[in-house]
Simulated assay, not measured.
Amino acid sequence: MSADILPMPRKAPTLDPMLSLTAGGMNSVNAVILDRMQSEIPLIPRLAGHLISGGGKRLRPMLTLAGAELVGYKGTRHHKLAAAVEFIHTATLLHDDVVDGSELRRGKAAANIIFGNPATVLVGDFLFSRAFELMTEDGSLRVLSILSRASAVIAEGEVSQLSAQRQIATSEEQYLHIIGAKTAALFAAASQIAAVVAECSDEQERALEAYGRNLGVAFQLVDDAIDYDSDAAEMGKDQGDDFREGKMTLPVILAYARGNEEERKFWKDAIIGHRTSDDDLAHAIRLIGKHNALADTRERARLFAQRAIDAIAIFPDSKARAAMAEAAQFAVARGH
């Protein structure tokens, strides 16, 4: 991969320009989220609020708002739709934590640990339903099609990941297909619907969809790298969760492919769940470092981030385009 892909800027990229760009809109989105997560059943807003107020970046709804700024949309339809995007995302997180048996989410106890698995799954279903209410209220069949399709693809991606769990033969191609579904699909849809509500050209709609999709892949690649190079305090979850759950993420796929016979035997044992101690995790991290698997995972992330930046090059230079480009750089450079 060429060394001039997405050269890092002199100062560390941040989300600050994106946060500034979307601050006004996010106030409206947050008001919708707060209103629509309410229920006469007290457990529902308590459990939903535990995650929704838990310090997430809200990057996905920000993509809808930033895309609207990029194309000069002056209406307000995208506020409810951005809230729908966040509800879809939150619902998938609640379900993921149950499937994975996660104990931490964003540095605090996961909802399933506090409220139990049944309630967590059901509140996830409630948030999915709220998302679809917001979509139907918007009235656009095109928007409904994009977001409902993304929801189905996310579920397919999660099932594919579950099927690949503890399967050492998982290829890089299979892995990219999984993260393209479970993560990038919602990034893509969140970006694309901004062009739809603004009645943009097909070319502009495709450009925003490509921006979101490539950003989503880059984001997940870095997430998977962080699991092997960050401590739990920085990550907001237990370091090595992916390792202990037998997930075939790219750092493992690369280290396994490049390992000698003894190393490959270790990986086979680890992925099927026979080597999951702290010492085993430390050994896994050493092997991943030995074969430059983290550096190469981040390099692939830089490639996808550059594709995202290139996708929006069709739009005139503006604060919105600059903020979206820096968000792509931040996705790669972040440490948590």
Rank of each mutant, 00 (worst) to 15 (best):
residue 163 S to T: 11
residue 297 T to R: 01
residue 27 N to G: 15
residue 30 N to C: 11
residue 26 M to W: 03
residue 43 L to I: 15
residue 23 A to P: 08
residue 174 Q to K: 08
residue 264 R to A: 02
residue 212 G to P: 02
residue 271 I to T: 10
residue 78 H to G: 04
residue 95 H to V: 04
residue 193 I to R: 00
residue 20 S to V: 15
residue 208 L to R: 00
residue 112 N to P: 07
residue 65 L to M: 09
residue 122 L to P: 04
residue 155 A to E: 04
residue 302 R to A: 09
residue 269 D to M: 11
residue 227 D to M: 07
residue 235 M to I: 13
residue 137 E to M: 05
residue 69 E to A: 11
residue 118 P to G: 08
residue 144 L to N: 13
residue 213 R to Y: 13
residue 75 G to N: 06
residue 249 T to M: 06
residue 78 H to I: 13
residue 306 Q to K: 03
residue 236 G to Y: 09
residue 282 A to I: 09
residue 118 P to M: 10
residue 294 L to Y: 03
residue 134 L to T: 06
residue 49 G to Q: 06
residue 295 A to E: 10
residue 166 R to P: 12
residue 90 T to K: 00
residue 80 K to C: 14
residue 141 L to H: 12
residue 47 L to C: 11
residue 196 V to M: 03
residue 66 A to D: 02
residue 239 Q to A: 14
residue 36 R to A: 14
residue 203 E to R: 08
residue 314 I to T: 07
residue 140 S to R: 00
residue 12 A to K: 11
residue 137 E to K: 02
residue 208 L to A: 05
residue 154 I to T: 05
residue 56 G to T: 10
residue 287 L to I: 15
residue 137 E to S: 04
residue 112 N to Y: 03
residue 336 H to Y: 09
residue 27 N to C: 15
residue 234 E to W: 02
residue 255 A to Y: 02
residue 271 I to S: 06
residue 239 Q to G: 12
residue 214 N to S: 13
residue 87 F to C: 12
residue 64 T to P: 06
residue 34 L to H: 09
residue 262 E to V: 14
residue 239 Q to N: 09
residue 265 K to L: 12
residue 269 D to S: 13
residue 189 A to K: 00
residue 96 D to L: 04
residue 138 D to P: 02
residue 263 E to H: 06
residue 50 H to E: 12
residue 194 A to H: 04
residue 157 G to E: 01
residue 105 R to G: 11
residue 148 S to A: 14
residue 151 S to V: 06
residue 37 M to H: 07
residue 311 A to S: 12
residue 68 A to F: 03
residue 279 D to I: 08
residue 55 G to W: 09
residue 179 I to E: 03
residue 79 H to L: 08
residue 110 A to H: 03
residue 252 V to A: 10
residue 142 R to V: 15
residue 83 A to N: 07
residue 311 A to W: 01
residue 228 Y to Q: 02
residue 6 L to Q: 00
residue 313 A to Y: 09
residue 230 S to I: 10
residue 55 G to Q: 10
residue 68 A to V: 06
residue 140 S to K: 00
residue 107 G to S: 05
residue 296 D to R: 06
residue 284 A to Q: 04
